[in-house]
Design a protein around this nucleic acid. Structure first.
Lengths: 223, 223
DNA sequence: GGTGATACTGGAACGGTGTTCCAGGGAAAT
DNA sequence: ATTTCCCTGGAACACCGTTCCAGTATCACC
């Protein structure tokens, strides 16, 4: 026992894939998408770039792992909920995760792999099935929902990325409203007319309203 | 007159912003998003990187200008059409443009500026208004449509980017269907069940069906 | 205790990127 | 003829992702 008592566990907090991914998420959250560089990551972990490459294939895998880490917590399932509520919960979970980690949206929407969106598609699809949609429309209904979620993901990511980290939501929305009000009345009549609505709107509620809108269209298919 | 007769017009096809943007679009189409580099662009234009910077601020503006050039042609308006048809035409115009230029999707969805999507929002919004939606729901309805369009834009861009330029659509979809069929039956029951539908589905029709779905939800608001 | 093998480290270096800088050329104005 | 000024394009800079590899620490076995 004496020999095994000297545990080598934290020789100096050994590098691990998990530690790297955690640091990558922190870096992305604080410094933005362009802030994730192998050199910055190496400095934060008090090591060199080469060591990181021993645990991780490259930047692509690093981003994928970071995305999974963030999104995984947002996909919890609640067996008791109605299909409608389940979809809403799912969608809002993604929305909230992207609100905290704006870079996920950009990656989700522009990655070449379906891997990160597949679990989301599956969970959305199950609820679509539970809604009583005819089988022939399953795919259409599920991908419409997914596409909407991802579309908002990208847009919202762009929004929160643009807003300075310190400034609050209201100030930013006010800025957008001002910009829209200043547009050419002839060319942007509609946009100007809804500038007021954007000033004091709630993105989250708006997003949920969009989900409901699509769910209405979907349930109309069941009859 | 004699002096002005010798027009200096094409001393050697002088560099211009327009010529640069055209070359950039060609480069993006043939070599993909990563193919657009100032050095490749300079070589194609038989000049150096410095000359390009005299006409263009940086890569961001170059991408924005290229996006505008491609998207501008897709936003033609047809005054005679019904609001429903107008939205469909608009959406399909964007879809087709992104099909030819996949890189636009990625940029549209991840850019920090709303500039390129604003004209699209305006045109969609006008049709929403024409549908008889109550004013309080204008913004929600228009952004739901826009978000869906952009969501598909991103996903579809990822798809056509992934497919090798030579291979046709059917082969690629078959590949996706095969991959989905090979998933874990317990974890991905739904995804497996729609793998067949994805094999011989028509993205374009599917996209239009999604638009209709949302339009159904929107028109339900009018009553 | 020695002695390999193995798992892991981290600094140096390579090719490529966006961007800046600036010495110059060529048409137009004086 | 000379000056002016738009415009060019090559060289250089800082930084990126990635590779390479000499070196270390740890363990299994003799």
């Amino acid at each position: 026992m004496a020999s095994s008592a000297r545990r080598p566990e934290r020789r100096q907090e050994p590098l691990s894939r998990e530690r790297i991914v955690t640091a990558a998420v922190e870096l992305l959250d604080t410094a933005g998408e362009s802030g994730l560089t192998f050199r910055a990551l190496a400095e934060r972990l008090a090591t060199g770039p080469g060591a990181i490459y021993w645990h991780v294939t490259g930047k692509g895998e690093l981003l994928a792992a970071a995305t999974d880490a963030v999104l995984g917590t947002a996909l919890a399932e609640d067996p008791g909920a109605s299909p409608r509520d389940a979809v809403r919960t799912l969608a809002l979970g993604v929305f909230d995760a992207l609100d905290v980690h704006p870079w996920v949206g950009a990656h989700l929407v522009s990655t070449e792999s379906h891997a990160p969106t597949l679990p989301l598609f599956e969970r959305v699809g199950r609820q679509v099935r539970a809604l009583g949609v005819p089988e022939s429309a399953w795919f259409t209904a599920a991908s419409t929902l997914l596409n909407y979620i991802l579309g908002v993901a990208g847009q919202n990511a762009a929004n929160t990325r643009r807003a300075a980290p310190g400034t609050d939501r209201a100030a930013h929305l006010g800025g957008v409203a001002d910009a829209w009000s200043a547009l050419d009345p002839a060319e942007y009549a509609f946009t100007r007319s809804v500038a007021g609505q954007v000033r004091d709107h709630d993105d989250r509620a708006e997003f949920a309203a969009g989900i409901d809108l699509i769910l209405d269209g979907i349930t109309a298919l069941s009859r």
